[in-house]
């Protein structure tokens, strides 16, 4: 009985320490040191939150760079992947149909090699990135849909190259480009060019 009380007391002590004080201490430190990151790396446009830099969004419109296929259609409540095994017929079927859609959508040759991340669904369903190659394959379709001239096309290609993140600290992880940030940049290019034409 004495041991039981003792274990309840020490459990209570550790609950306060690791369950309340520890998270509060960490919250306090990071709200001072990294407030933007601690609050979700949110992106503001005209004082409205339009998303988080880290959380991918669904892009299927002809005027935007498409994001990766997602088992949850980029709805984070809750996050997750397809959990299909490689011998699951649904996976094979899904990859084949996504491939032909991607080719038609971007008006590519039938034998174009499509980067794997554009054919397979991500683990979180919220993957914000695609490869540089996957972005470049979509440029001509966007240029056509937005009626851009060849200078703007060059500007976009250059933008894709500039915005590609190299592996972190030279060799950690993969080369990648953030689709949401890229599309926001694309909208900016569209606005400036539009203003230029009017002027």
């Amino acid at each position: 009985m004495k041991t039981l009380f003792l274990s309840i007391k020490i459990f209570f002590f550790f609950t306060v320490l690791t369950g309340i004080l520890y998270p509060l201490l960490v919250t306090g430190i990071v709200q001072l040191t990294f407030p933007a990151q601690a609050n979700g790396s949110l992106i503001l446009k005209n004082n409205q939150v339009i998303g988080s830099e880290l959380i991918g969004q669904r892009f299927d419109s002809i005027i935007y760079f498409s994001s990766r296929p997602s088992a949850i259609a980029y709805n984070p409540m809750p996050s997750g992947g397809s959990n299909f095994g490689l011998t699951n017929a649904k996976l094979k079927h899904s990859v084949d149909s996504i491939r032909s859609q991607f080719i038609i959508f971007n008006q590519l040759d039938n034998d174009t090699s499509i980067p794997a991340e554009m054919l397979f669904e991500s683990a979180s369903g919220l993957d914000p990135h695609i490869s540089q190659k996957a972005a470049l394959l979509q440029v001509d379709r966007i240029v056509k849909a937005r009626n851009f001239n060849s200078d703007t096309r060059q500007q976009i290609i250059q933008g894709v190259k500039n915005m590609t993140e190299a592996p972190q600290l030279l060799f950690l992880g993969e080369e990648r480009i953030n689709v949401l940030v890229l599309n926001i940049e694309l909208d900016k290019i569209a606005t400036t060019n539009h203003t230029n034409t009017i002027n």
Binding site: G81, L91, E117, E121, S122, A123, G173, R176
Partner: peptide, 10 residues
Amino acid sequence: LPLMEGKETR
């Protein structure tokens, strides 16, 4: 094809 099902680009 690289097996990217259920994997993250980064």
